[in-house]
Design a protein around this nucleic acid. Structure first.
Lengths: 154, 154
DNA sequence: AAATTGCGGATATCAAGTATCCGCAATAGC
DNA sequence: GCTATTGCGGATACTTGATATCCGCAATTT
């Protein structure tokens, strides 16, 4: 039960783009050296954010990635789900209906209690991440960080 | 980001033991056939619950596993953590301090904002699971299920 | 035309989850 | 004591997903 390390990478990449002037662009290579990450693999993960509609990509010189929406309109949940997908942590395989102790269908009209609670917990997780936007992240940055990010990436 | 399937198995196994009379015991083989699960692998996972102090195991004929504590005193979180461990979903590798854009230490006195929110979300997940006990699960069972479980496993 | 950049596919490696089997120790019943 | 049952630890194998790289192609800027 772990998020891929690349989730951390794209969260920071998105945070960096959010610090630039609106529409600010940075290439995968530039972002990779900015955080000392494997360039080829980071590039692949950034593409996932484009597919998810969070980033917009432009080819050619001076091209790269930029935020597709306003930082206040992109949540941490969207970024995480772009990398990790939306499939639930816990999948109920209805093993209560299998084997020697299989429960008859009329006793399974409502969802398995275990699945209910596991899904509720997961919903709480997603709800928390959906509350936070890239704008919130930028606003929480210490003084001077944004200025330096713009100098190096902008 | 998925829980191992064995988490579902041991959650149901623990739920079944909770349905028996206090101190009720069931062997790994019996639990495996009760839910139609691979006996050898299930046995291995049940051992993890013993190591975690949730189950007590006894060898020999009429032996097997029983709850180490009262069902009302065993939470879903404990069961999940016995299988999946307690390491966080998101591990901050402080990449903000790496690479060309490395932030100086005086700007990293407080935890990375991304890590803070990811951990808060995870805490919400764990808190939900810590609220639910095996007793709650048994109480939520449809009529007749517990009777049948006792007939087959007790 | 040339250089830069993203995109998709192919491939390789590594860790974790799934799964099985073995021998050993402990226990209950005879 | 003997035997059958059961949990325990270790060794092993397979599969899947994450990590990582490289290539050719398309698009765009200069």
């Amino acid at each position: 039960m772990k998020l891929p390390e690349s989730a951390e990478w794209v969260l920071h990449a998105a945070g960096s783009l959010a610090q630039l002037e609106p529409g600010g662009t940075a290439s995968a290579a530039r972002l990779a050296e900015h955080f000392d990450l494997p360039p080829a693999y980071l590039a692949k993960q950034l593409q996932a954010l484009v597919r998810a509609g969070l980033f917009t990509a432009t080819t050619g010189p001076r091209g790269g990635f930029r935020l597709a929406r306003h930082p206040g309109d992109i949540t941490l949940l969207e970024i995480v789900e772009a990398i990790d997908g939306t499939s639930p942590f816990y999948t109920c395989n209805e093993i209560r209906q299998q084997g020697r102790g299989a429960a008859p269908p009329e006793q399974c009209r409502q969802m398995c209690g275990l699945a209910r609670h596991l899904h509720a917990a997961e919903d709480a997780w997603r709800a928390r991440l959906a509350e936070v936007t890239l704008e919130d992240i930028v606003d929480g940055l210490p003084r001077g960080v944004q200025r330096r990010t713009r100098e190096l990436l902008g």
